[in-house]
Design a protein around this nucleic acid. Structure first.
Lengths: 210, 210
DNA sequence: GAGCCAATCACATCTTCATGTGAATGAACA
DNA sequence: TGTTCATTCACATGAAGATGTGATTGGCTC
């Protein structure tokens, strides 16, 4: 049984969703309020729900601010935004604040039910339109540079050691080889990467350039 | 009518999907090959499909490399990855390269059909597991935008120098101070960050922990 | 089987780093 | 006005790193 909470200031919509969800066999929806503040009050005295449907435009604190506060206090609550807003800023702010899903308000009741189940199974429900924006975020990013490390497996081991902040001695111990071998590998790594210090190798590696 | 192409090296899977899709009223799937190279050959002489299903592990060029090449030549083709890989790197590399969807191979045929329709309607089909990773990318990214570095401005300058792979001498030159001053700053930085080597400072910095 | 290369080890030398100790200046703050 | 702290510099020492010049082994390839 998945326990659902709702924060939504439109009474009609709120009641409709609550009744529908609470009617389902595998869901329970006992708490539906019209502001984050009210929900926080409620949470002080009751068990937290598993999933929360949250509007963005709310009286008092906005839903996005609410995510942060609720996730901080009750990190196990999974929050799905349910809103009319589909602009990138609100979407990304919500996701960054910790929302696990984002549905537009034209979503049908059965779809909302599916989304909640989907979430409980480790998914992340999103309206298709939202998913598209999220995906486009990535292709808008700079085209990935090709790492193509010419490094051998052993050389990459050594790099890992360097990134972990180990001295040559400790790297030698970790891989059970002599410190001179470590030195030899490092010399080859420097040559291949065209660098000449540990620092540059670590920097390159952490920038994903290896 | 949506025209679909398939790049998949497993003949059984490829034929199965092709036959199923081509059987649908609103879909057509005439071209199904087992490598990106073959697909590129085909595209030279035929109209490009609207949607392409693409595996990652392929003979010759990988599917991820393929995305970039195909999207560059034929930007209107929407590419859905269809693969067994669910590791973050492959997901994000694919999306950054320009994929519009990402499905895991256990996806059923009707779900694949839905995904193609979803894509045509401006959505971005993703297996729930994938959607979750994509969403988590955001909440993992932003939250600590200000890691509250206790470092002074000068100390941060020095850190920048270290990250750039400079020696103390070069850092001293860059900021026109003596090497002993650089040493002094670095000692303070080490104390504040609780580390004791250049390597750790660089690692912390590039991980955004400063 | 000659040649190439990854992986291993050794020795030597010079540079750079890490750390300890100490101190002067000047701005900020109570 | 005295204290705190960032910034600057100095000297010293042992540890770690960078670089040069070797060598041996085993796998792969032409």
């Amino acid at each position: 049984m998945i326990d659902v909470g709702i924060v939504e200031d439109n009474v009609k919509i709120r009641n409709l969703i609550q009744r529908y969800l609470d009617m389902q066999e595998n869901l329970s929806c006992k708490i539906a309020v019209d502001s984050v503040e009210e929900m926080l009050e409620h949470l002080k005295e009751h068990d937290p729900p598993n999933v929360m449907l949250m509007d963005i435009q709310l009286p008092g604190m906005s839903g996005i601010e609410g995510i942060g506060i609720i996730k901080k206090e009750y990190p196990d609550i999974e929050i799905i935004m349910l809103t009319i807003y589909h602009d990138s800023h609100k979407i990304f702010d919500s996701l960054c604040a910790g929302a696990s899903g984002y549905l537009l308000k034209h979503t049908t009741l059965p779809e909302i039910k599916n989304s909640i189940e989907n979430l409980a199974e480790g998914g992340a429900p999103m309206s298709p339109q939202i998913a598209r924006k999220v995906i486009e975020y990535f292709s808008a990013q700079e085209p990935q540079k090709k790492p193509v490390s010419d490094l051998t497996a052993r050389e990459q081991d050594i790099v890992t050691g360097l990134v972990d902040g180990l001295s040559y001695k400790l790297i030698a111990d970790r891989f059970d080889i002599s410190i001179d071998t470590v030195r030899a590998h490092i010399r080859n790594i420097y040559k291949k990467l065209h660098v000449n210090s540990k620092a540059e190798v670590i920097a390159k590696s952490l920038r994903g350039e290896i």
